[in-house]
Simulated assay, not measured.
Amino acid sequence: MTGDAFRSLYTRLRDGARRADPRGALRHLTPERVVAAAARVRLGRTVSLAAPVDTRLGPDNPEPAEHRMLAPAAGETGAKGLHFALDRIAMNVHGDATSHLDALCHVLYDGELYDGVPASTVTPEGARALSVDLVAEGIVGRGVLLDIPRLRGVPWLEPGDWVTPDDLTAAEAAQGVRVSPGDLLFVRVGHRRRRDELGPWDVARERAGLHPDAVAFLAERQVSVLGGDGNNDTAPSVVADVAFPVHVLAIHALGVHLMDYLQFEELAPACADAGRWDFLCTVAPLRVPGATGSPVNPIAVL
C-alpha cells in the first residue's frame, strides 16, 4: 500500500466515524447489547484469552516481566504462627510477549491522539485524556472469534503474511457467524501456536497480522474492540513510513481499543466443540490512572 493510499484510507475512516465521544467505538457497545451478549451463555464454560506472563529473556521479549518473591523470609516456612507469602510483578505493558490492552492515548499521529486530542496531553506523569481510565468499569460484550488459519487449512500464518477483508468475510461464512455492531472481534493468526511449537523469534522484524484494508471491515461492522494473538499489525509493514498502520487506523481514526498478543489455543477448540464462534466476553483492565494500556486476562464464557 502506498503512502497516499494509506492516507486516503485513514481520512475516509476518520471522517466516517462519529467523533467528539471519548469512548470511541465503545459507543456501539450499548447496555442492550451487553444484555444480549449475556443471554448467549449456554454451557457456563470459561476460557482465558491471555498468555501466561513471560519472565524469560527472548528475541521477542527483551524486557521480560519481573516476578520476584518478597516473602516468606528464610526460616519462616517452618516457623510457628502467622506468616505471608508476598511477591512483586513489574512489566512493560506494551511488550511483544505480554497480553495487553491499548488505550486510545497509545497512538500519537500527526501530533494528535484520537478525536483531535493534542498529543501533549500525554505527559511524563501519565495521559490526561483517553487513558485506560476510560475502561475502568471493564468491557463486557459479545465476542466473536474468526480463525484464519482454520479457514486456510494451516496451523498458523507465517510471519509477514496478512489477513485481508475477504479473509474475514470468508471466515464468517465458514464458521456460520457474523460480526455485528458493538462486538469484540478476535482474529486468530496462530502466532501463539507457532511460538509454542517453534520457539520465539524477533517479531519486531517479522510477524503476521491484518492488512490495513481489513480495518475498513471494523468500521463497516461497527466493531468496538479488536483483539489478536499477535500485534494485529503485520511486519514488515505494508505501508512505507508507517510502521503500525492498523494501530493508526483502528485506534487513531476509529477509536477502537486494541488487545495485542492474546492467545486463542484453548478458545478455538472450545468454540469448535460448542459449534459456535460467539460468546460473552469480559475484559478487566487494571485501574492505573493515566496509563496508556494495561495487562489483561479476557475471559470468554460459552
Rank of each mutant, 00 (worst) to 15 (best):
V135H: 07
A97Q: 08
T55F: 06
R19E: 13
P245D: 11
V283L: 13
I139R: 02
V140I: 13
A20T: 03
V35L: 14
N297M: 07
L302S: 06
L226W: 11
F84Y: 13
C271I: 12
A270C: 12
T77W: 06
S48E: 10
L86P: 01
V117D: 03
G24A: 08
A243C: 05
G3Q: 14
G176R: 11
S131F: 02
G58I: 03
L249Y: 05
R18P: 06
L26Q: 13
A270Y: 02
D54E: 14
G143L: 11
A103R: 02
I251L: 10
A129R: 14
L49G: 05
R287F: 08
V238D: 04
P236T: 04
F217E: 05
A243G: 09
I251H: 01
H247R: 13
G143H: 11
D202W: 11
P155K: 00
S224G: 04
V223Q: 04
P245I: 04
G16D: 10
D60H: 12
P181N: 07
A272L: 10
R88C: 03
L184G: 00
R33I: 02
G143P: 15
A38D: 03
D167C: 12
D273T: 13
V177D: 05
D202N: 14
D4P: 00
V122E: 00
L145W: 15
A90K: 04
D147W: 06
R152M: 02
A208N: 13
A291V: 07
L184A: 08
L218K: 12
L267W: 07
D278C: 10
R276Y: 06
D21G: 00
R287L: 11
R68V: 15
